[in-house]
Design a binder for these strands. Structure first.
Lengths: 365, 365
DNA sequence: TTGTATGCGTTATCAC
DNA sequence: GTGATAACGCATACAA
């Protein structure tokens, strides 16, 4: 009431904020309609407005170069047009691809993509989760794997609960063992298939460079390797402590150079495989004649190194997550999708020549 | 008035929204203080509040697990706690590093980082600019270079004007020829220094793989190459159409293989240099014995390829931009900083053996 | 189909 | 120091 009286007390004044910004009220006034009507046409609400009126409002908005205040809209809708994507590190191409997938979908619907680097710290992950919830993000995409041993997991669960009570939609991109929609790959299968591929190439003595210690993803990939080796009756104990970066690959390769070389090596990531590859080559090893090397991810540089690798649908992971978050389908906490992966054979792996020899030995013996 | 009466009419009821969220009013009620006082302590305003009162409010907030509604706060402050970073493509490590620089600073102050991929489209850039302005971002960091010929430049200028009238701070990370704070490198100097370095190594016939056509950054880098060659009395006409990706590098190298090889090649980006490097090697050329190769950026993979390159302070560019945006210094439209770059000599460049020969020829002649 | 009035959850401006 | 209350700019339930 009071507000309205003030307005009438200053007849003829435009309702402009200090920044000179034109508000919806200005549009309504110019179009000669009520604020409500102006809102109905500008907000794109499915509400009956006469076409003539609609046009007048649009014209007025255009004349005044009206731009809706997203904050005010968000306040009443209890929701911002933003999607938060929580990742390890945007400079890691794995996460960058996911983020790109999210952003592409977000942009199509005028959503903004918020990026949150955790450097794999569960504490930072929770902090960002909280921040995004407070920001009333429309959706939160959590891309990193979990650390089953982390004490922060309990707080994480509570945040998931809070998210489920709120209107912001949550999607996890790896098996986080929480009640939330998940879009993932089968990490165990990833290494199983890759290991089988190398075994099929005649390799027997296969080394594995592990992923980041303690990460659930690393655990499952390690299991897949072990299982594939076991089913072929091979020894899966040739493992090197690793990580997803280049350095762990280098370190593992340096160790290999000092001992008997394996037939092949699988690294838990492309980057680690690059480290293995270049270090072995610098050590005088011919790839793939002496040792085959394979990675996981198929990132942009895998082709450059001609690296055999497992292609992960990183971009699609992000894109599907964003679609689900923005989408009009009703929220379903049991929404779960597993995306397929496949081996991309390239030049760093080849048929194991000594396997022929073994066969001959077998025949002779 | 009406609101208050309603509250009294339902004694004992907690003021909770439909989402069950606890609001500041709940905190105030529980602490037995007014909404204003509760706001003063929770918003961290520099306003005198008795320490005892302050503590009561804090306790109440903690008891109720109160989380401030950032949207409501943003509405009255006319500003969200977000920084938008407008880049070409987050999967390009150059931009990823910049984004990381921004995000690191943002996180320290509880700001959210919004990422905007334009794919170098001026139209998309403007669209995102508009979106960020409407979102009342605290700051906008524009990282991409400009296309001097683009018709969208006028609209861009208008957006810059609008930004300057609003409270959101704008920073550009390349020479955009607009009235806005800029944090850049000297692109002309970048190629000049690198070219001089190669000339100093005895190379004479130097090829240049250009950057993306039409981009101001590419233009300036090309100029730097030409100038350095000219001042040494060398021919700068050995240029290949390029781009910042791997493929343009490959294409240029393929061309080189079909003609007389240059002494050295400079690519406008590391990625292009990788393309040149691998393609030449696949063509049987020994690097650096026959041809030296250098790039620009010093991204994470440059070390892997042992690539000589120009180190660009990408991370710092982003970090400084974010600091300036969040910072407490008064806004200064003439704020301009140029960050230094330097050559990182690695294994893909070496002294030109035939230069010795030339010297001997000279002496003999 | 249009208009009126209320509320969204804060901060800020007054008065006390 | 503290409290009451008016914005902030929009969407929407309810009235007409």
């Amino acid at each position: 009431m009071a507000g309205r009286e003030n307005r009438e007390a200053r007849p003829g004044t435009r309702r402009r904020g200090p920044g000179g910004k034109v508000a919806l009220a200005d549009v309504a006034e110019r179009a000669g309609v009520s604020l409500a009507t102006a809102s109905r046409v500008m907000s794109g609400a499915a509400y009956p407005v006469a076409e003539a009126t609609r046009e007048r409002v649009r014209q007025a908005a255009s004349d005044l170069a009206y731009a809706p205040n997203m904050i005010a809209r968000a306040l009443v809708r209890r929701m911002t047009n933003t999607i938060g994507v929580v990742i390890g590190d945007i400079t890691d191409s794995y996460f960058a691809e996911i983020a790109r997938g999210v952003e592409d979908q977000a942009y199509r619907r005028d959503f903004l993509t918020i990026i949150c680097n955790t450097d794999r710290s569960p504490a930072v992950e929770n902090a960002y989760f909280r921040l995004l919830l407070d920001h009333h993000a429309a959706g939160i995409v959590i891309a990193g794997g979990s650390f089953p041993q982390a004490p922060e997991n309990e707080a994480f669960r509570e945040l998931v609960q809070e998210a489920s009570r709120s209107a912001t939609r949550l999607v996890v991109l790896s098996d986080r063992d929480v009640e939330a929609p998940a879009i993932c790959v089968d990490d165990r299968m990833v290494t199983m298939d890759l290991t089988r591929y190398l075994i099929g190439l005649g390799h027997r003595r296969i080394a594995y460079v592990e992923g980041l210690t303690g990460l659930s993803t690393s655990l499952r990939r390690g299991e897949g390797f072990a299982r594939a080796m076991a089913e072929a009756g091979l020894d899966a104990s040739l493992r090197y402590p690793g990580g997803f970066g280049i350095e762990p690959g280098r370190a593992a390769a340096a160790l290999m150079l000092r001992n008997e070389l394996p037939d092949a090596v699988i690294a838990a990531s492309d980057e680690a495989a690059f480290g293995v590859l270049t270090t072995l080559q610098q050590g005088g090893v011919e790839i793939p004649r002496q040792v085959s090397v394979a990675g996981i991810d198929d990132n942009r540089h895998a082709q450059l190194f001609n690296l055999t690798t497992m292609r992960l649908p990183t971009y699609d992971l992000g894109a599907m997550a964003a679609k689900w978050v923005i989408g009009d389908e009703p929220s379903a906490p049991d929404y779960r999708v597993t995306l397929p992966c496949r081996v991309i054979p390239r030049g760093t792996t080849s048929w194991n020549a000594s396997a022929d020899k073994r066969k001959e030995d077998l025949r002779a013996g």
